[in-house]
């Protein structure tokens, strides 16, 4: 009985308290309790992080122990994980060593990985903008007009292009995205209500 019912009650209470704080902020008790619940979630999530770290350590230690393919890279991962966790915990994230690692190891890879997007957006445009039917035609036309309308060279090709491009962004784009957002909001509310009411329980074993 406790195996199912207690978790459902906990979920219901947590959800309704957050809703209560939002709709009745003038109620001091609900307001502070609601703030508590949101902060508590951060604390519980921090504990969950430990589970994630255990998973990462386990997977890679195993890979090294079994000399699986790519075990040498796993050593790199464990070394960087352990070193920077230790420096971060004991010397602080503002210490010069941590900052050096942050500036010259973490940031270049971070920015390098984000800049792969330039390549991806180019090849994805080439691959997927094909005039297969009227719908893909509209998709392609929208992309090409706005792309050219944003740079000066587009105005050289056709003078009205920047104006057309900003109209598309301001009117049909807003309409389409707004419609999707409204539908998405309804879906999110329906699903969240099902969670609060205890109708979604895949993590408790079975949905029924």
């Amino acid at each position: 009985m406790t195996r199912r019912t207690v978790p459902l009650i906990i979920g219901f209470l947590a959800g309704t308290i957050v809703l209560g704080k939002y709709f009745l902020p003038q109620n001091a008790f609900l307001d502070s309790l609601g703030t508590d619940v949101v902060n508590w979630r951060t604390i519980v999530a921090a504990f969950a992080l430990g589970l994630g770290a255990v998973n990462l350590l386990g997977t890679h230690t195993m890979r090294i122990a079994r000399k699986e393919k790519g075990w040498d890279a796993s050593i790199v991962l464990l070394a960087s994980l352990v070193t920077f966790t230790a420096i971060g915990l004991f010397k602080g994230t503002t210490s010069p060593v941590y900052q050096w690692g942050f500036n010259y190891l973490y940031q270049p890879i971070y920015s390098g990985i984000s800049s792969l997007l330039a390549f991806m957006i180019t090849s994805a445009s080439y691959r997927s903008f094909r005039f297969k039917d009227w719908q893909s035609g509209v998709l392609m036309l929208g992309a090409v007009i706005v792309m050219l309308g944003q740079v000066g060279i587009g105005e050289l090709l056709f003078r009205g292009l920047p104006a057309v491009s900003s109209w598309i962004m301001a009117v049909p784009n807003t309409a389409g995205m707004r419609g999707i957002a409204i539908g998405g909001a309804l879906g999110a509310i329906a699903l969240s209500l099902r969670v609060i009411l205890g109708l979604e329980r895949g993590y408790l074993g079975g949905g029924q």
Partner: peptide
């Protein structure tokens, strides 16, 4: 996602998926 994937669930479709 629509451009690069074979199939994409848009907005509310993911919520109705379950």
């Amino acid at each position: 996602l629509v451009a690069a994937c074979d199939y994409t669930l848009i907005g509310e479709e993911i919520y109705a998926a379950g």
